[in-house]
Amino acid sequence: MSGVPAAPGLLGAAWMIARKDLAIEFRTRSAFLSALVLSLLSIVIFYFAWDPTAIGAADLAPGVLWVTFTFSGLLGMHRSFGVESHDGAMDALLTAPVPRQSIFLGKALANLVFVLGVQAVALPAVALFYNLPVGPAFGALALLMLLASIGLVAVGTMFAGMTANTRLAELLLPVLAMPFFVPIVMPAAKTTALLLAGRPIGEAFAWLRILLAFDLVFAYVCMLVFPLTLDD
């Protein structure tokens, strides 16, 4: 009998799991396309609920963007545990000799790519449909989207894992996760508004500080408590 080989560590295993998730997503593309279409649809629908003479596009766009991002993100995160529970693949992950936190990290990483991918299409779409000049603020916006998405994905992945095996999972996930998105969406939307108004990112310093703190605290805490959400 061969000796027990060295199992991959936290980051190595997380990377394998993330790559596997992205391969599945790339193969099927179903969740990504749904999330994308959902985003575009909601952007378009918002347009028709809008009176351009009363509210300027730059004032409306931040809300549209971030509401769209949170909902499409939740869709992807819910699905990311669906592939594990479908044929009991989660059991295989749990019997493998990898740290359980690596499951969280890997899933979160794949979800981050997913969420950023949707945003990369949705942002130009908003710019196009609402006739907004995002060009000058592009770098700052990209940084903001990354910061906000980290928090979004940390909390979303944790709750998606928790609700995956419950009844009503697709309903329960947003109910549980949305309150946690308040300190993400509020700073993100406010900062987006500032950037679209052509202000320097420095003026949003107080908001960015909240975002950064949220990311650090919740990425750490969610990773810590994630094993508690696994079947035991």
Partner: peptide, 8 residues
């Protein structure tokens, strides 16, 4: 249960 990913 098969514990497999059906898309792979």
């Amino acid at each position: 249960r098969s514990m497999l990913y059906e898309a792979l």
